[in-house]
Amino acid sequence: MILEVKNLVGGYQNKRVLHGLSFSMGDGEVVGTIGHNGAGKTTLLKSLFGLLPPWEGQILFRSHDITGRKPDSNVKEGIAYMPQGQGLFPDLTVMENLEISCFGLDRKTLKKRSQQVFELFPILEERKRQRAGTLSGGEQRMMSVGLTLMHEPTLMFLDEPSLGLAPRIVQLVMENIIEINRRFKNSILLVEQNFEQVKRVAGKIIVIKLGQIVFSGILDPALDKRELWKYF
């Protein structure tokens, strides 16, 4: 088990969003999380990554308790998080974004890792010297995904990588995620609204509704989209 979550309760201020979630992820697994907005998907990722202090419950990473640990230690231990929306530094160039994201590592590693990112996303190499804020929406998303790879994470939390992208670009980004999983054998917890893409990428699925897990298990490829409305 790379990640075990036991009875996690959390939220913002006095707003309780997560009402006791428990699930686990195996090595190399891709788990899709779906549920409507406000169901608590983003809150879950933030609580797991240490951006929000969990109120109750336990988070185990490779059997170590990491409940409430700060993001900087999590990053060093190989956990990465891609936030929703603009997960990059718009005023820095593409290359600078990559450099910053493997802060504390030496030049050689930087070169190797950015090469990995460029292999996955060749377009970024072409735009190396461009300010990240001037990239197109799809390129920005690739950039964000690329940034999470710089510490060669074994566990990745991706928050809506398809958000706001054109269908064609969504396909592309999802293929990249499949490729990442294939190449680095890492575990990915994916929050997505785009169910078709979740089906393509994830082996397991968690459905969250009102801060509780209402379904979790193997994803049935025959599951029809229209049936999903009941979870939304």
Partner: peptide, 23 residues
């Protein structure tokens, strides 16, 4: 410089800076 770029990163997107592990 590295630290200079990190400073610009904090100016540019402080939440993201935290996410990638900048103290």
């Amino acid at each position: 410089t590295k630290t200079g770029k990190a400073l610009r990163a904090v100016i540019s997107n402080p939440e993201m800076a935290e996410v990638i592990g900048i103290d």
